[in-house]
Design a protein around this nucleic acid. Sequence first.
DNA 1: TCTCAAATCACCCGAAAGAATGAGAGCGTT
DNA 2: AACGCTCTCATTCTTTCGGGTGATTTGAGA
Lengths: 154, 154
Amino acid sequence: MFVSLCTQFCSLVSVKKTIFLYGLALAVLVLIMRMIEYRFLVRDLTLEFYIGLVALFFTALGIWVGLRFTRKKVVVIGPEFHFNEKEQIQRSISKRELEVLELMAQGLANQEIADQLFVSLNTVKTHSSNLFSKLEVSRRTQAIQKAKKLNLIP
Amino acid sequence: MFVSLCTQFCSLVSVKKTIFLYGLALAVLVLIMRMIEYRFLVRDLTLEFYIGLVALFFTALGIWVGLRFTRKKVVVIGPEFHFNEKEQIQRSISKRELEVLELMAQGLANQEIADQLFVSLNTVKTHSSNLFSKLEVSRRTQAIQKAKKLNLIP
DNA sequence: TCTCAAATCACCCGAAAGAATGAGAGCGTT
DNA sequence: AACGCTCTCATTCTTTCGGGTGATTTGAGA
């Protein structure tokens, strides 16, 4: 909350132009009002109309100014990960192979992957070997990079 | 941009109360203006004053409404990374070793690290070896985990 | 000047990774 | 039942990688 207020304050400081334009708009509007007032001589009957008009205009202006100060706060968090199932099917990569791939991407050794999946070390080696040929790579690091490129892992 | 607009629209739909209050405030203000107007009979001389007052009030209202719609957009991104220099000094970890550590955390192999730092593979090995003893670990994966824990790398 | 830490590199060895091959169990489809 | 696919495991062999030790050069500081 405090940080938010500080940010708004900083924005306020750096937008002298906006304040100037705001005052200018106010003056111009008043001028226009006066001109209209003298031209049609309907001052008494439509005072509420004038006031409503001014209110509407300056509400819109206020909303615009308010949005302007906070627009920069809309922050985009990194791109979301969408699994590329098409690529998985095209390369006929099985579920188990994907599991091995994910653990491999976490920097785990084959033995650790084997322990985590409750299978033999040789099984992990077989999976990774098949994975390498399906991804057309030869080493695990290349496999990880290519898998990330193909949106198979985050 | 499109998403932003949609969000604002959704917010608009869900704030009927705000719109109602807005209209109410407008009516009340007009009423007050009229009362003041009839009480002091100074309509002609201070029209600009009235208009300015209305403008100011509704600008403030507009800013408030604008802020209200965007306040929810302030998103907090994950915890920021603050490098733990104290830990680095205590363990007497050199700059070069830190560089190796960062690249190691990116999953790069020793040869790739060597290529990136324009040094020999053996040099990288020496650095990483010293790093391991300073971090009291024996393998690179452990080193990465511990370094993250000690805020030496993001 | 001497000292020490940092950075660099070479050599050696064991562990891990990867390739190639074979094979058996389970499961769904034809 | 026969077939195909996945998952599983084993064995052998080669290559790569990781880690340790020792050594040299350089620059900053006591």
